[in-house]
Amino acid sequence: MLKVQELREIIKLIDQSSINEFTYENDGTTITMKKSNGEQRDPVQEKPVEQLEQQAPEVAIKEETVKVTEEQESAEESKSQQENNTVYDYEIVSPMVGTLYIAPTPESDAYVTKGTMVKDDTVVCIVEAMKLFNEIEAEVTGEIVEIMAEDGELVEYGQPLFRVKKQ
C-alpha cells in the first residue's frame, strides 16, 4: 500500500506531466488517476454526500481522481479501529527525515519495547540523517503502548514513532 506522501508525489508528477491517465496495481490494490479536460470543477460539491456514499468510494484531489478498493477501505477501517483501541496520551514523533534505528547497534537490544516505562530524558531510538546519528528522547514520562515504525525504516518529519500513556 502506498503511503500518503508517496501518493502525493505521484499526483504531483502526473499533474506536471502530459499523462492524462495513470493506473497503479500492487497486491490487489488498484489506484487510478485521471486528469480532467481543463474544466475547473469540484466533484464533491456536484452531488450530495448521500449520493457519493452510495457510489464506489472515490477521493477527488484537484484534477486527479483516486479510486480506493473495498479491500483498502476495510484494511484502513480495521487499522483505525485498532489505533482507537490503543489508549495513549502522547505520540513521540520523528524530528527529521532519516533512517530509524530502535537499538544502538544491530546486536543490541532495543532501547524500548512495548510496556517499557520511560522518563523525559530516556532515549527511545536513533534517527540517522546525513551520516549523523541523532538520539531521540521520550520528552514525557509514561509507558510505551505502541511502536509505530520498524527498525531500519525511512521515517518522515513529524511521523509518529511511539505512543505513550502518560503517568
Rank of each mutant, 00 (worst) to 15 (best):
V66E: 06
V66D: 08
V68E: 10
V68F: 14
E70N: 13
E71Q: 15
Q72G: 10
S74R: 12
S78C: 04
K79E: 14
K79F: 15
S80I: 11
Q82C: 05
N84S: 15
N85M: 11
V87M: 06
E91V: 05
I92E: 01
V97P: 06
G98Q: 02
T99I: 14
Y101F: 15
A103G: 06
A103H: 06
P104C: 05
P104T: 04
P106M: 00
E107P: 00
S108E: 12
S108N: 10
A110C: 05
T113N: 14
K114Y: 05
K114F: 06
K114A: 14
G115E: 09
T116F: 06
M117G: 04
V118N: 02
K119Y: 08
D120V: 10
D121F: 04
D121T: 15
D121P: 02
V123H: 01
V124C: 12
V124S: 03
E128D: 10
A129W: 03
M130S: 13
K131L: 08
K131M: 08
K131S: 10
K131F: 08
L132Q: 13
L132Y: 06
F133P: 11
E135A: 12
E135C: 04
I136V: 13
I136T: 00
E137T: 15
A138L: 05
E139Q: 07
E139D: 13
T141M: 01
G142I: 01
G142R: 00
G142H: 01
E143Y: 02
I144G: 01
E146T: 09
E146Q: 14
I147S: 10
I147Q: 11
M148L: 15
